[in-house]
Amino acid sequence: MTSLSVLDLHAQPLPAPDAPAERHLRALPTPRVAPRRAPRLVHGVIALAGLAGIVCAQLGLSVVISEGAYRMSALQAESTSLARAEQSVAEELAVLSSPQHVAVAGAELGMLAGQPSQFLTLASTSTAGGPDALHMQVPAVDGFGMYVPNSLLTAQPQVAASVAHVQAAAIEPYPGMLLPAGASAPAIEATAPAAVQAVEPTTVAPGTLLPAPGQE
């Protein structure tokens, strides 16, 4: 307390001397103050070691975190690459499962359209056949290429080969046909049936029943 405040205290009006409250003042025993000990070396060592420990832990933690970042980066790269592989395969699959590919591949294997289902009628205990034959059924691919084209399939080696084969068969050279220089015209008797076959698909009368693909 400064001298200023002492003065201020004195400026306060004093309590009335004849206050009824009676105070019992007595001296407290002197508190026992523990004697101040000199700092020991071990405390300093512990403090410093703790500090060093914190620094090391911090360092280790950030090393681990940044290592994790590298690992994450590598895993993300791997995930991207796998996603690309998956997409590429899915894309190929979608093209292969397109109706055109299924039709061309089926025809190439010599497959025919299945027979219509037969139905059992309980009332008459007989079977009822399905519908009659189609009036016109031509293969998915003929000399002009695919009826329902798919430009993605032209990149498919197998389909491309199949289409090229059919087209080549459709324009098989006949005697008297103009050929590119170097190619030789075939003998008449060998190619006559082929020529008839080649012309057939384009000149059928409406409603003619044609062989289903792959029958010949």
Binding site: A113, G114, P116, S117, F119, A128, G129, G130, P131, D132, A133, L134, H135, M136, Q137, P206, G207
Partner: peptide, 19 residues
Amino acid sequence: IPAFHDMVNLLIRHFDIPP
């Protein structure tokens, strides 16, 4: 008419429509 016939025919086969 043949085209209509063939289309109906294919639908019957595809969806197995009973007679």
